[in-house]
């Protein structure tokens, strides 16, 4: 009897040691499901802090738009809707590839996973390229807030061939607040994308090595959550910055 118990115990310990080696089931979790649950839970808590962070910026935008509406409308109309819409489509495509990548990892299809991660990175880089082009245009127009900011396009729109009501100089100065928020919000969004792309290079290399095609999906899944979150931020930035101040073009 005693020896039978001892044998069972030994077998248990042995089984314990067998699964310790699996990255998807560390020894301090009862089951794989529990570990996965804990991982997703932690990732969502992190994303909630990110919602609060971007939420503060969105709220500042809401209040200042309310205060200086004419300046916000005029400044917003200087953003390119076609470029913003193009970037929205690019980012949605990137998110779609990431989602299919998670599926490929679940299905343990290594080459499809690597391909999807590469496409996700590719669309992310296109987004940043378009963003660079937009920033560069603002630089050339002296629409970056600060000493060299130029309000003449807003005080004398007719002189630039723009069909807008001219703003009084004090209101025209407030376009700097719009552009400050524009750069702060899209800039923080771009920083998140750059961090994401660095992580994507690392994940692609690990996926290529075969880390995520034997049942260990958590890093891909949790990175996917981060990447989709960054998408969602842009889904709000695009209408708020590019669309809602637009007086429909005559």
């Amino acid at each position: 009897m005693d020896s039978a118990l001892a044998t069972t115990d030994h077998a248990d310990v042995h089984a314990e040691h067998d699964h310790v080696a699996l990255p998807q089931h560390r020894h301090h979790f009862e089951t794989e499901e529990q570990q996965r649950e804990a991982g997703s839970f932690g990732m969502w808590l992190f994303l909630l802090t990110e919602i609060m962070f971007f939420g503060g910026l969105f709220f500042a935008y809401l209040l200042y738009r309310n205060w200086y509406y004419p300046a916000f409308a005029a400044a917003s109309n200087q953003l390119s809707v076609p470029l913003g819409a193009f970037n929205t489509v690019v980012l949605i495509s990137s998110g779609f590839c990431m989602a299919v990548g998670v599926w490929a990892a679940e299905m343990r299809r290594k080459s499809l996973l690597v391909l999807m991660l590469v496409l996700t990175t590719f669309f992310g880089l296109i987004f940043l390229g378009v963003k660079y082009d937009e920033y560069h245009e603002k630089y050339e127009l002296h629409h970056i807030p600060g000493d060299s900011f130029n309000i003449s396009m807003f005080t004398n729109p007719a002189g630039y061939g723009i069909k807008e009501e001219p703003l009084a100089p004090d209101m025209a100065q407030k376009t700097q607040i719009f552009f400050f928020l524009y750069f702060a919000m899209t800039g923080m969004h771009a920083v998140h994308m750059i961090i994401g792309i660095v992580l994507l290079f690392w994940l692609t290399w690990r996926a290529h090595r075969g880390d995520f095609s034997s049942g260990y999906v958590a890093p891909i899944e949790n990175f996917g959550l981060y990447w989709h979150f960054v998408d969602i931020v842009w889904l709000f930035l695009f209408p708020l910055l590019y669309l809602i101040n637009r007086h429909p073009l005559h």
Partner: peptide, 12 residues
């Protein structure tokens, strides 16, 4: 005990 959240793994 082992799966307190009834986490069922669903693949989309």
């Amino acid at each position: 005990v082992t799966n307190p959240e009834h986490a069922q793994h669903h693949i989309v």
